[in-house]
Amino acid sequence: MSVRLDPRQLAAAREIVAAPELVPNAPRACTDRSFNLPTALHAGFFGLFLAYLGVMAIGFPHPEMVLPMAIFVIFTVAFYVVPMLWATMGPANESRAMSLGALFERGVETHTGLTSGGSAVAQVLVLPVLILLWGVAVVAIAALV
């Protein structure tokens, strides 16, 4: 729960702490590019968005929709392929992506606390599933009207 803090209490509680020796920013190699989720979740997310685009392309097969659908597919593929390439580029990654079994066994730490594996999968996949179902509903309504 959040509690409103009195600004006077905050000002009274402040302490002056000596700053450590300032060191200029040195370039560092990013060595953790695993995104902390199983590859299967990323693949499911990607597959559900491509399925939505497929439903829309099949549901609205007008010749003028070929170019917009091609652009949507190209951008969707790019949004997943570029991070995948970034995660696999050198220098070698010090950490590996979590396996699906490890996710269900240990869960994942979020800002609100530990979340079980099933809850994490539901949170990650709820938006693409709803978008896919929305696309199916739109195509069904368009077919019936």
Rank of each mutant, 00 (worst) to 15 (best):
A140G: 07
L100H: 07
A102M: 09
G47V: 00
R8H: 13
G135S: 10
G113V: 00
F72C: 12
S2Y: 06
P38R: 02
L53T: 07
P7A: 02
T76Y: 02
H42D: 02
V66Y: 07
P7W: 03
G118A: 04
A122C: 09
G59E: 06
L132E: 09
P24E: 05
Y52H: 12
A92F: 00
T115C: 08
T31G: 06
A97N: 01
V81R: 08
E64W: 10
A92H: 11
G54N: 12
L103P: 06
Q123C: 09
G59Q: 07
S119L: 14
S99H: 00
A43G: 11
C30F: 02
Y52C: 14
V82Y: 02
F60G: 01
I58A: 15
A19K: 03
E15K: 11
V138R: 14
L114G: 12
P68S: 04
A78H: 04
A29I: 04
R96P: 08
V3L: 11
G90C: 00
L50N: 15
S99L: 02
I131C: 14
E109R: 15
T88S: 06
L41P: 03
I74E: 08
L41G: 02
M98H: 02
A143T: 10
V136L: 15
F60P: 04
I71Y: 04
I74Y: 10
S34H: 00
A143D: 12
R33I: 01
L127T: 09
F46P: 01
N25Q: 11
P38Q: 04
Y52S: 15
M69Q: 11
P38L: 01
L10M: 13
Y80C: 05
R4D: 11
V66A: 15
L114D: 10
A13F: 05
F46S: 11
G59P: 07
V17R: 05
L103V: 04
N25P: 12
G107Y: 01
Y80N: 10
N36Q: 14
I141R: 12
T88D: 06
T112M: 14
V73P: 11
M1P: 05
A78C: 04
E94K: 13
F35G: 10
L125S: 02
A122M: 14
V3C: 07
V136F: 00
D6G: 08
L144N: 12
S116M: 01
L100T: 05
G54M: 06
T31Q: 13
A13H: 05
V66K: 14
I58T: 12
G47Q: 09
L48H: 01
T31L: 15
L41V: 02
M89F: 01
G113F: 01
T31A: 11
E21F: 01
V55N: 06
G101R: 14
F79I: 07
P61A: 05
A120T: 03
Y52M: 15
G118E: 08
S119W: 12
T112A: 15
I131M: 14
A57W: 03
L37M: 13
V124P: 01
T76R: 04
A122I: 12
S119P: 08
V55A: 01
L41I: 02
I58D: 12
H62I: 08
D6S: 11
L22V: 10
P91R: 03
L133W: 00
L5Y: 08
A102N: 13
T39I: 09
A137V: 03
A13Y: 01
L5C: 08
F46E: 09
V73C: 13
V139G: 00
P38G: 00
V73N: 11
P68Q: 06
V121G: 05
